[in-house]
């Protein structure tokens, strides 16, 4: 990986292993295994993969909901993988905010919208109730809700509105970066666009950096500048969205792209699906794979012989 330090978030060899049981029954799950990537300021980096591939765990480890097993993480050059001190927690929570998947689960049912959205301000020492209220109203306005909504409880809102409240809660502390974990996948089709558009507007307006985690490649592709594809805890390919779509290199990326149903009856009827079977598609018995930059901005997890083949494919 390029050693440039123009990344706002840099993750190096991040591992997150969960173990359960003891002794003989001990089970080690490598949820995230040696993952490295960097996110540039004001960029949207998409993390895509299927359920259980470790994309959510990666996001949650970055914001330190989990303590990483090993690896390095830097935000604006500051180490954020070290032991959790009060100072570090403050630094993290001031700079990175998170948007969650489930619009029902992610809002406390016992708190009003004003309390939910204003909480970030209050714990940062804003005592003046009117000031908090004014900021909350301003933020609600920004996400397309009104002052009148502030005194309501979450259960009174529809899924899309709740997700916008979640965004307002994350944005009110003016973070530099947002980790959006499947922010639209639990929403109805007609509502997803509202939320995607809102995130796009906020990104433009506030110069946000976004780590966008989703399983829907169309949405990730639309939303992200660069995309990392994850498979079973590993990043297998990182590329700019268009490159990834035009010339996917890793067989898993190809399989993923070929599986997405497009709303077009003509292409759908003739679509050929590509299967991915790691046993069949790779021979790593002799050569060990590593993350290699095949073309500018295009990284693939491959062995030297595969690299050669990929380079040929790209016409290099």
């Amino acid at each position: 990986m390029a050693e440039e330090s123009n990344y706002i978030l840099e993750v190096k060899h991040l591992c997150q292993h969960f173990s359960s049981g003891r002794g003989k029954n001990k089970l080690l799950v490598k949820a995230v295994d040696d993952v490295s990537f960097g996110v540039r300021p004001a960029e949207t980096f998409g993390l895509v993969g299927e359920s259980g591939c470790g994309k959510t765990t990666t996001g949650r480890t970055i914001i330190r909901l989990y303590n990483p097993t090993s690896g390095e993480m830097y935000f604006n050059g500051r180490d954020i993988a070290g032991p959790m001190t009060k100072d570090l927690r403050r630094y993290l929570t001031d700079n990175i905010a998170m948007i969650f998947q489930d619009p029902i689960e992610s809002l406390n049912p016992r708190m009003t919208i004003e309390e939910i959205v204003g909480e970030g301000l209050r714990i940062r020492g804003m005592k003046d109730k009117d000031e908090v209220r004014a900021r909350v109203h301003e933020m609600l306005e920004k996400v397309g809700l009104t002052e009148e909504h502030a005194t309501r409880y979450p259960h009174e809102f529809s899924g899309g509105q709740r997700q916008r409240i979640g965004i307002a809660r994350a944005m009110i502390i003016k973070p530099k970066m947002i980790i959006a974990d499947e922010p639209v996948s639990a929403l109805d089709v007609s509502i997803q666009a509202q939320v995607i558009n809102l995130l796009n507007d906020l990104k433009e307006e506030m110069g946000l950096t976004i780590l966008f985690i989703a399983h829907n490649l169309s949405v990730v592709k639309y939303f992200s500048d660069r995309i990392g594809v994850m498979y079973y805890g590993r990043l297998v390919e990182i590329a700019r969205g268009d490159d990834l779509y035009r010339c996917p290199l890793h067989p898993y990326t190809k399989a993923l792209l070929s599986a997405i149903p497009e709303p077009n009856p003509i292409t759908e009827r003739t679509r050929k699906r590509i299967d991915y079977d790691p046993e069949r598609d790779h021979d790593y018995s002799v050569e060990k794979p590593t993350m290699v930059e095949v073309a500018p901005e295009h990284f693939v997890y491959c062995s030297p012989s595969e690299l050669e083949q990929y380079q040929k494919q790209l016409g290099l």
């Binding site: 949650r60 929570t93 990175i96 905010a97 909480e119 970030g120 809660r169 502390i173």
Partner: peptide, 8 residues
């Protein structure tokens, strides 16, 4: 979790 990420 959301509250934790806010630093509560």
């Amino acid at each position: 979790l959301a509250a934790r990420t806010l630093g509560v």
